[in-house]
Design a protein around this nucleic acid. Structure first.
Lengths: 213, 213
DNA sequence: AATGGCCTCCTACCAAGGGAGGAGGCCGGC
DNA sequence: GCCGGCCTCCTCCCTTGGTAGGAGGCCATT
């Protein structure tokens, strides 16, 4: 009926998930991947998948960057995040990155099944608690507190120029360093901020540019 | 010797300019145009022109859009901007649009002549003060009041996704159109917003995203 | 003295962004 | 009807962005 991909590094959890699916969505086929790289490999060869279940915390994908990479590799593939984490901010960012749902690992089996059916039907599934809380923007727990703090001095400096809309070449000129060096810094920034493009880094940074100024 | 086009809506100024040219560049021929439309008509029929002097503030051309149109109509034709304005930002944008020089109307006759000879020789002429001022980025005037309003529906839609940090590919997926179409829209957006990169467009739009939401 | 972090720079390579130009379909105003 | 704006899509081409990996210099801690 459906073709699903389960990407999780815990074999046990994968098994459980597959069991739930095979029992609840009879006739469905499941593929498995123990790493992000494997998952990307799978989706590259199977363009007929209906849904991917992606665990946050894969060894080769730090958090949401895995989602970004997977979505990049296969924009046509709906992805549901399956995670132990439940921070509101993480969930919102996942949606922002194109996830069609977010399923906490603590979800009971029947609710999990319902959630899967919901996203397979084209809906978005979110844990009930996140939907009832206050507005996404308001009174949110310090969303991205520490990632900016982990940047080194030069990296912060480069980021400040990025936020002004400057190209790598311009930044190099302004800071009087080589463009390749700027690229090095930019790559480091993207990695630390766990995003996959300059634009996302800029948006993240300018949301709370307090840290940059 | 040279064939020049003087596009300015003030007859008096045109005359003065023509006088300077005929005296300083003996043997040169000058054509005149009192509007952008006329200028475009002239260049369409004279493909042997060496240079166009374009006034900003022509009645049928709002500022730099006149330059854009003229350059579009005749990309082979070098254009020097002649303007009363001297805002640094305007000058930079003019160069960005392909102008080969920028001559303030306040320029004394001999300097003006020197400037013309300079651009006819293939050089770029800029008012001396601009070259020495502080960084281009600083103290920029709030340039964009209503450009967002000039965007079409789909363009606004695409921009809204850009602002969320999505790539062209993702936007194409979301809007269910081809990536090339997205690129077309993005190009149009950049042109209308008078910026030269996606990041700048995003920053501009999200400054006052009131227009996008 | 050695280690490790940071900054610098490089090559090489691949993906994404953006411009130019052309083309067809749709729709609304003249 | 025709024309112009908008949306769609394409090809070709170049620039920019980003990753990978290696390398040398500086400096503080150990």
């Amino acid at each position: 009926m459906y073709r699903l991909l389960v990407a999780d590094d815990h074999p046990l959890f994968r098994e459980a998930m597959v069991a739930v699916i095979s029992r609840g969505l009879s006739g469905s086929e499941t593929l498995e991947a123990a790493s992000l790289a494997a998952a990307i490999g799978v989706v590259a060869q199977h363009d007929d998948l209906d849904l991917a279940l992606l665990d946050l915390g894969l060894p080769d994908a730090e958090g949401l960057s895995g989602l970004a990479q997977l979505r990049q590799a296969a924009p046509w593939l709906p992805v549901v995040i399956v995670s132990a984490e439940q921070h509101k901010q993480t969930i919102l960012e996942a949606l922002n990155l194109g996830a069609v749902g977010y399923i906490p690992k603590s979800t009971p089996r029947d609710a999990l099944l319902a959630a899967l059916q919901q996203v397979l039907a084209g809906q978005v599934y979110l844990p009930p608690d996140i939907m009832r809380g206050s507005q996404p923007g308001s009174a949110a727990p310090p969303p991205t507190p520490s990632q900016l703090a982990s940047l080194t001095g030069k990296q912060r400096e480069v980021l400040a120029h990025m936020v002004k809309g400057e190209s790598n070449k311009m930044i190099a000129y302004r800071l009087d360093i080589a463009e390749t060096t700027v690229k090095t810094h930019v790559s480091a920034i993207l990695r630390k901020l766990r995003v996959s493009s300059r634009v996302q880094a800029i948006l993240l940074a300018s949301e709370r540019d307090d840290a940059v100024r």
